[in-house]
């Protein structure tokens, strides 16, 4: 009686499973109705572009449409791999990420460990809330700030350099400075926000472990190393996997805004190249192929690293 009146209740095990499945779908038709628009949206705006990716293997001519354009096999990919820019783009893209992993990835971890050691709870809250703020600054403002601060005319950084007798440096117009500036400003903007997850993980570490370590005479530093760090290691591994799975993606919008002819040597990355060649110059097939190459490398890396982590660190995404 109850189960027919109550659509949520688990349907009783009937002899024919198909009819009970049918019943439980029909009785929840309104849930599917809710899902209808989002699913259609996913089909159009996520699976639509995946379908459109076939232009990577075609010579896409907008007037002929996707289906009417001719297949060209791997021509677009070959053209990219053999192009003059290929190694420069690949190196810039990968190196920005490798340097970020090396220099930026540990910062939020260290910040979280530091915050965790602050005894005055009010001060600890202040530190947290202040370090979150830059996360909410827009990319345009961030790059605008960089230009103002690093300007060779009256920028505070150059003022300091000159005060110490140095000559002004044109930071934003130099290829050599591009990556250090990009990465360090990323650290400034995101360390607080990214530390949230580690701080939360630290608060979940069993306090008895600290007590036990203290009894054994471990110093604070040793307690951090032997209790805190192992406590958040799974989180670190997960975030590391995710980051490596993004190795071919860079903070595209920020790079685009920081890019100029004078630093192009260091700032030309795959995604900005796709933007300039594709959207500005209309080479759709060629750049769609480059984009596909990019996603493919990312996905492969993600799967490989995840498999490696599952074996070695017993932590994985899936």
């Amino acid at each position: 009686m109850k189960s027919t009146a109550n659509p949520v209740g688990v349907a009783p095990r009937s002899k024919s499973r198909r009819s009970s499945l049918y019943k439980s779908i029909v009785s929840r038709y309104d849930l599917y109705l809710m899902l209808l628009v989002p699913i259609v949206w996913y089909l159009v705006f996520h699976y639509g572009p995946m379908y459109g990716l076939q232009i990577a293997f075609k010579n896409f001519v907008p007037t002929k449409g996707i289906l009417g354009s001719k297949w060209v096999g791997l021509d677009n990919f070959e053209r990219f791999v053999q192009s003059y820019y290929f190694w420069r783009l690949l190196w810039n893209t990968v190196s920005i990420n490798l340097f970020s992993l090396l220099f930026a990835f540990p910062v939020p971890i260290v910040l979280a460990l530091l915050v965790n050691e602050i005894r005055n709870k009010a001060f600890s809250k202040v530190v947290q809330n202040i370090t979150y703020i830059p996360h909410f600054i827009s990319v345009v403002v961030m790059v605008g700030m960089l230009m103002l601060f690093l300007s060779s005319r009256g920028g505070p950084v150059n003022t300091i350099i000159q005060a110490f007798g140095g000559s002004p440096v044109r930071f934003m117009e130099s290829a050599g400075w591009f990556k250090p500036i990009f990465i360090s400003s990323n650290i400034w903007q995101n360390m607080g926000w990214q530390s949230i997850i580690y701080i939360a993980a630290l608060s979940g570490v069993n306090p008895q472990l600290y007590e036990a370590a203290k009894m054994d005479g471990a110093s604070r530093l040793r307690r951090i190393w032997h209790v805190s760090v192992p406590g958040i290691l799974p989180v670190i591994v997960i975030l590391l996997i995710l980051d490596i799975g993004q190795l071919m993606n860079v903070g595209f919008e920020k790079i685009l805004l920081m890019q100029n002819n004078l630093n192009l040597e260091a700032s030309d990355v795959i995604s900005t190249f796709v933007y300039t060649k594709g959207i500005l110059q209309g080479e759709y097939s060629y750049t769609a192929a480059i984009g596909l190459f990019n996603s493919f490398v990312n996905l492969t890396l993600l799967v490989l690293v995840n498999r490696f982590a599952r074996k070695k660190a017993e932590t994985s995404l899936w």
């Binding site: 705006f45 996520h46 572009p49 995946m50 459109g52 990716l53 796709v274 750049t287 984009g291």
Partner: peptide, 13 residues
């Protein structure tokens, strides 16, 4: 989240 058509096909769409 792990695979997308990318910017060009989205733009054309």
């Amino acid at each position: 989240m792990f695979f997308s058509g990318g910017i060009i096909p989205s733009y054309l769409l």
